[in-house]
């Protein structure tokens, strides 16, 4: 998610101190190392190899969600009859 073909994206920028890389810039950091920084080293290198394509597959759905326009002021709801 966010790290494809070594191109820096939003999450990677968050991980690289002070925004050393610019959005879209080709970076040399290994994918797993970047992922480990982004996600707080909660997953090992071997598992990342399994998860990376899964996350990549989820990206299209995430993009749909991110782009869905929610009017300002709409807050998370509580129960069904709120």
């Amino acid at each position: 998610m966010g790290i494809t073909n070594g191109v820096a994206r939003r999450e990677l920028l968050l991980a690289l101190a002070g925004g050393a890389a610019a959005e879209g810039q080709v970076v040399t950091v290994a994918r797993w190392e970047a992922a480990a920084q982004v996600y707080g080293v909660r997953i090992g290198k071997e598992r990342w190899a399994v998860l990376e394509p899964v996350m990549e597959r989820r990206r299209a759905q995430l993009e749909v969600l991110r782009r869905f326009r929610v009017a300002e002021g709409v807050e998370p709801a509580g129960g069904a009859d709120d």
């Binding site: 969600l65 991110r66 869905f68 929610v70 709409v74 998370p76 709801a77």
Partner: peptide, 12 residues
């Protein structure tokens, strides 16, 4: 942020 966006979509 994705989680909160999803919760706001739920409201919508």
């Amino acid at each position: 942020m994705d989680y909160i966006q999803a919760l706001r979509v739920r409201t919508v």
